[in-house]
């Protein structure tokens, strides 16, 4: 009843496999936040994008669905910036141990 998974329903037309991870993440952020955002590697997900910890967790689940990966909790705890997130996604996609 309460797990309204709108974050999981990221529009696959907006994000695509052919682009760098940063572009995909940026597009997912825009969908989740509902407005265009300028993100760089240094963008702080909590401070600059105004997401609370729960928002971050749900956002991470959307990313996990999109890339078909699971980001372990200790790894999520280390993610502060968009650059950290891109790095984690790239690591997990290439099969590097978390």
């Amino acid at each position: 009843m309460r797990q309204n998974h709108q974050l999981a329903l990221v529009d696959s037309k907006v994000v695509g496999w052919g682009r760098p991870v940063r572009d995909d993440i940026s597009a997912i952020f825009e969908q989740v936040l509902g407005h265009p955002v300028q993100v760089s590697d240094g963008t702080d997900i909590v401070e600059d994008l105004g997401m609370d910890s729960l928002g971050v967790m749900n956002f991470v689940m959307a990313i996990e669905d999109f890339y078909d990966i699971s980001i372990p909790l200790d790894r999520i705890a280390q993610i502060q910036t968009v650059g950290d997130l891109i790095h984690a996604v790239q690591d997990l996609r290439s099969g590097t141990p978390a």
């Binding site: 797990q3 372990p72 909790l73």
Partner: peptide, 9 residues
């Protein structure tokens, strides 16, 4: 390693 799944899913 700790992985969380969606509640009751």
């Amino acid at each position: 390693e700790v992985i969380r799944f969606r509640h009751n899913s």
